[in-house]
Simulated assay, not measured.
Amino acid sequence: MNTVRAVTVTPGVPNSLRLDEDWPEPPTDEGAILVQALAVGICGTDQEIIAGEYGQAPPGQERLVLGHEALGRVLEDPTGTLQPGDLVAGIVRHPDPVPCPNCAVGEWDMCRNGRYTEHGIKGLPGFARDRWRVQPRFAVGLDPMLAPVGMLLEPTSVVAKAWDHIERIGSRAVWQPQNVLVTGAGPIGLLAALLGIQRGLSVHVLDRNKTGPKPELVRALGATYHTTTVAELDFAPDVVVECTGAPVVVIDAMCKAGPNGVVCLTGVSSGGRTIDFDAGALNRDLVLENNVVFGSVNANRRHWDLAAQALARADQAWLDSLITRRVPVSSYADAYASTGEDIKVVLDFEL
């Protein structure tokens, strides 16, 4: 029987990461489209699963294959949806089996009962294996020129959803946003800034790093880089995309938004910390200025398609510069070990 290499963990067991050299070939019930893995992006979610903080193996299995930022090349597709050789990414979240009202209409990113599943995270094997399968409706074809950077599609889908909802909320009235504040210059923040630039907005990115690649990456986009606090900024943004999850930054971002401002929270806070702030003053500002604060996570098919279009329009050299390390599968442990200086690390199946 053929086998593949797979990076796996035992969910809930800290530091159980390993490379299985004889993982079973993906069964056809995972999907009709067979894909050769090219690369998998690594993010904080992977680190948290490795630390044993969460994660759920597929039913009846002890171990979970990691990897949700996928890029592969189609080996076979009997459905004719894609052609052999096409670049493809697999949508991470699948709808719950009931389904809830949102999952029933393809809005599984807005699942109401929490019974959704996610590749490499919750109940579905991930993409960090030599070959994987995907159902046609969860397969997103990519422009061939995105071969070096297509694993960025998943994080781009997250910010594509964020911008989709920002614009839906903004359309409640005559809305002519001029400037955007993005807090955090990690992959999500930089990609959120990219989509703001593509919308013709004046984009400001705030991050605490004064050195390293982040300031230049922001400037190369045509955006402005700040290392002050949010409160010290000399403008009131029409849109805020908060990507840090840092409680002080979250509160300051909500306080800083201008009239009719929209604040999108994409960063997940760890909890367990308290902050002394004037909740009454924040409430007053939100009400009197008609501001909206909302949270956004994950993405549905529409957002994945929007993300693919955004990446295809972007400067490919700039996208490539987001990837600070490409690590072969044989050195998988190095890929998942955070240096604190990386922007995006990629596990490369072709090295």
Rank of each mutant, 00 (worst) to 15 (best):
V159I: 11
C100M: 13
E350N: 10
C243P: 00
W163Q: 02
P148H: 08
S270K: 15
A193H: 00
Q176R: 15
Y54L: 14
P26K: 03
L75D: 08
L153V: 07
A223C: 12
S157F: 03
D130N: 11
R131V: 14
S269Y: 07
S338I: 10
A312I: 07
N179A: 09
G295V: 04
D334R: 14
R284Y: 11
S296T: 04
P101E: 12
A193G: 11
L217G: 05
A317E: 15
E350Q: 15
V262H: 04
V98E: 14
A307H: 07
D342L: 08
P101S: 11
R302H: 14
P187E: 05
P14I: 07
H94A: 09
Y116W: 15
P58I: 12
T3E: 03
D22P: 01
D315Q: 13
R168Y: 06
L288P: 00
F277K: 00
Q135V: 05
L282A: 03
A253R: 08
H226G: 04
T228Q: 14
Q47E: 13
E25S: 05
V293W: 06
V4K: 09
G170P: 02
S321Y: 08
I91Q: 15
Q316D: 04
E21D: 10
V287Y: 13
D77N: 06
Q47I: 08
F294Q: 02
G184I: 09
V88C: 07
G200C: 04
V140R: 12
W175M: 09
P24A: 06
M110S: 12
V203Y: 01
K161D: 00
P27L: 03
T79H: 12
G271Y: 04
I91N: 02
T45S: 15
L191A: 00
G186F: 07
G340T: 12
A307M: 06
L265Q: 14
A185N: 10
A57T: 14
I42V: 14
Q198K: 04
V241G: 00
K214D: 00
N290L: 09
A192R: 03
Q36M: 06
C243E: 05
Q61D: 12
N300G: 05
I251P: 03
G123S: 06
T229D: 11
R5K: 15
G271H: 03
P213E: 06
V345N: 08
V249R: 06
S331G: 03
V240N: 04
S321V: 06
